[in-house]
Structure formats: structure tokens, C-alpha cells
Simulated assay, not measured.
Amino acid sequence: MALTIYGIAASRAIRPLWAAEELGLPYRHVPWHYNGPETREPAYLAINPNGTVPAIDDGGLLLFESLAITLHLAQTRPAGGLWSETPEGVAGLYQWTLWAATEIEPLARQWFHHTSFLPPEQRIESLATAALDKLQARLAVLERHLAGREWLVGERFSVADLNLAAVLQRLDALGRGELPHTRAWHQRCLARPAAQRAWALRQAKA
């Protein structure tokens, strides 16, 4: 089954790229920029009508939304070890992935936009501070969950760890205080060989 991943690695495309590396999947990477003209062309809009990255063509199955893509790749390649074998485990994969999308990413993006991404004249310091303040309560939830365990769901690294670790890529700046369990978990995730290969693509294309 041929897999094509669209989007530069210095974007949310890092998530499906990391998943593909974890699963050992052969894939074609089309490193189109999220602001590039290619994403506005009819050919790409037929794949992702939002005109954003990432998107994939997985043997004819077209899919956008980075976290949906990683869940799809993990579920359809269970031998790769990122999915769960139990209903309880699958529920956990969805829970932590949706938690990353709803509780962490909006605040992390608000902070990033108003500290680094937007032009200086458009940044609003109070919005960055407010986002960082709210994130601490969410990170406290994660810290308590990780106490006494290495991974989010079950006894091994899963797509839930991949998704949340990628959303929390700037954990060093986002987390106040020690957060020993969370920081150790994040380091374990990003130290994985597949993560290193994916992040090497990110550095090359940044």
C-alpha cells in the first residue's frame, strides 16, 4: 500500500512522519509548505479541501488532520505496536489524543503565536501569559497520570504518546516547575530512533 505524506516536517506533518517512521512504513514525503502555492492548487484541494498540511494519500484513502492520520496509521498497521489490543486500551488512545487536541494544543499555539510565530507588532503578551497560566493545570493532570508509569496507555509506547509528545514539542518552555514524570516521559518519547529520524527531516526542512 503506497503512502504519501504531504507537508513540511516543520509543521503538524511531523506527527504522521513520526508515525510512519515508528511503524517502519515506506512512504513518499512531499514537503509542501503550509503557506505554499501548491496547497491552493485544485490537485491538492482534492486531497485536503482546507488547503492546509498535513494530508495523506494512503493507497487511495485521502485523509487530513494530523492526529486522525496518526490514529489511522496505527490502527491499520497493528503489527507496528502503536495500537492497543484491548477496548480499554483503545479508549485510552482516543482519550489522550483528544486531550492533546482540546486541552493542550489550543493553549500551546496561543502561547507560541504571541511569543514567536506572529510578527512582533501583532503579538499580545497578555494572551501568551494567559495561555501559559492555563497550561499549568493541564500539565499537572499529566504529571499525576505519569507518576509510577512510563507510558500513557498500557506498558508500551503507543500512538497516544506520539500524539501528545508531538503536541507538547515545546514542553521545556511551556512547563513551569520541575514536572519530573512529564519531562522524563517526554524525553523518552523524543529519544526514540523513529522520533530522531522524523525530527531530522524537520531540521532539514525548517
Rank of each mutant, 00 (worst) to 15 (best):
residue 25 L to A: 08
residue 156 R to N: 05
residue 24 G to P: 11
residue 29 H to R: 03
residue 109 R to D: 00
residue 141 V to P: 11
residue 66 S to D: 00
residue 119 P to Q: 01
residue 158 S to W: 00
residue 8 I to D: 07
residue 57 D to M: 14
residue 151 W to Y: 14
residue 113 H to A: 01
residue 89 G to F: 00
residue 19 A to V: 06
residue 18 W to F: 02
residue 136 Q to S: 12
residue 106 P to C: 03
residue 46 A to E: 01
residue 137 A to L: 06
residue 17 L to N: 13
residue 108 A to E: 04
residue 15 R to C: 04
residue 108 A to S: 14
residue 34 Y to S: 14
residue 152 L to R: 08
residue 116 S to K: 04
residue 125 E to C: 05
residue 173 A to R: 06
residue 1 M to R: 13
residue 43 A to Q: 10
residue 3 L to I: 03
residue 143 E to Y: 10
residue 101 A to C: 15
residue 110 Q to P: 07
residue 64 F to M: 15
residue 23 L to T: 09
residue 18 W to E: 01
residue 202 R to M: 14
residue 191 A to N: 12
residue 45 L to K: 07
residue 111 W to T: 06
residue 201 L to F: 07
residue 93 L to R: 02
residue 102 T to Q: 14
residue 118 L to H: 01
residue 198 A to N: 02
residue 127 L to A: 00
residue 120 P to F: 07
residue 143 E to N: 09
residue 34 Y to R: 11
residue 126 S to P: 13
residue 190 L to A: 09
residue 135 L to Q: 15
residue 79 A to I: 09
residue 54 P to A: 10
residue 127 L to C: 03
residue 21 E to A: 06
residue 205 K to P: 10
residue 100 A to K: 14
residue 178 E to G: 12
residue 41 E to N: 15
residue 35 N to W: 05
residue 164 L to H: 11
residue 169 Q to W: 04
residue 116 S to N: 11
residue 94 Y to Q: 04
residue 136 Q to M: 04
residue 198 A to C: 03
